[in-house]
Design a protein around this nucleic acid. Structure first.
Lengths: 214, 214
DNA sequence: GCCGTACCGTACCGTACAGTACGGCTCAGC
DNA sequence: GCTGAGCCGTACTGTACGGTACGGTACGGC
């Protein structure tokens, strides 16, 4: 895990535009689901030859890895305000995190990609699972934790273990949503639902960790 | 989903002892992972002929379905005390739930089976995902909710929406554990960890929903 | 105009695996 | 002891798919 961290953080190179088009074709096929993603199907969808596919990505696994990385590279959102944190800003930051996270895990792309990665994690060859984890769960953790610590520094939050506090936040936001979606439950979340769920989670988190103004 | 509920609740028939042995062989192969579970491997492991496999289970999907059901049939645990609930009993019940649920999702069998079901949910043909969901997330929900409602009846808990309260409990208990395990993170939970995590989750749940004694 | 490079399309190869067929063994019923 | 049912082991078939080879085309460099 730590050995592969260097690899995970090094997206080799950014793919060329044509390559990006190919990866988008892969994504569209994955999201459509149904048939089990053959190299032929990718070549057809992307209007390129299989030979090119193998030349660019090595093998099927390489193509999948590149696709996952490509998708991950578009997810990262902006940084957040940390200095001079007041209660309203903290709440808003948390709300934003919760909403964007819920939007991600509820998106068909994320669901499909996570399915692939989960399946892959069983037959361990490469580490799609690790990549997804690094760009999902752990990436958001690294972005939320500074906010939590800033909240603590501003005497708005109280906790000892930042990681534990984040995991509680993560649980309150995600609940059963991701596993249900991965398992094919027809759970639909529109923007309003996401807003409501996020607000609920943030309120609960603040109830647990918020410092009653001293 | 609702249409398939009847099917899901009807485990066809309980398999014969020999059939159970075959299903256990499938489970052992699934848990071992590595190679992608071929019918040949199952026949070899179970010391039976492929012909018998097909006669008994129809096809590969039928075998998988029977395996998932077979595993599910062993998970159901006992009922819980509901009448005359006091605070300590409520807490103990919740703690038990949390521990048993964490034990389940952290077990290699559950992880492997959920991986199969998740992969299956992508290429929709049968409904392994629905079966796993019905016997996992939803089954535990149906068992926890009466306890929560009994707690409310005993004026120990306060909430409007039982389902929402349960989902909070679910999130507090599970946090990021299941998705990390599914994605192959080397997260190990021993019994002590599980006890600690469960206690933590229960304390948080009671902090959110417990009724400050009136 | 000629060549090399990069690519498309398609044909091809090898293999792995789902599903079937069949001979042989065991054992219960008679 | 004979027969038939049930099952094991193995051999076989068909096919889907990963990976390779190759002819044909477009294009930039010279």
């Amino acid at each position: 895990m730590s050995a592969s961290a260097a690899i995970l953080d090094t997206p080799s190179e950014t793919p060329s535009l044509r390559q990006q088009a190919v990866l988008d074709a892969v994504l569209s096929l994955i999201v459509e689901g149904g048939d089990p993603l053959t190299m032929d199907a990718v070549a057809r969808r992307a209007s390129c030859s299989k030979e090119t596919l193998y030349k660019w990505f090595g093998d099927r696994d390489g193509l999948l890895t590149a696709t996952v990385r490509w998708q991950a590279s578009r997810v990262h959102t902006g940084r957040y305000e940390i200095d001079a944190l007041d209660a309203a800003t903290l709440k808003k930051n948390l709300q934003d995190f919760a909403e964007s996270w819920l939007s991600v895990i509820a998106s068909p792309t994320s669901v499909a990609l996570n399915r692939i990665a989960v399946a892959h994690a069983g037959s361990h060859k490469s580490n799609l699972g690790a990549i997804v984890l690094a760009n999902g769960r752990f990436a958001i953790g690294e972005r939320v934790k500074p906010v939590l610590e800033a909240g603590r520094a501003a005497a708005l939050l109280a906790f000892d273990d930042t990681e534990a506090a984040f995991r509680t936040f993560f649980g309150l936001v995600g609940r059963d949503i991701q596993i249900r979606l991965l398992l094919g439950d027809a759970l639909s979340l529109d923007a309003a639902d996401i807003g409501r769920e996020a607000a609920h989670a943030v309120a609960q988190f603040l109830a647990l960790y918020g410092r009653a103004n001293p």
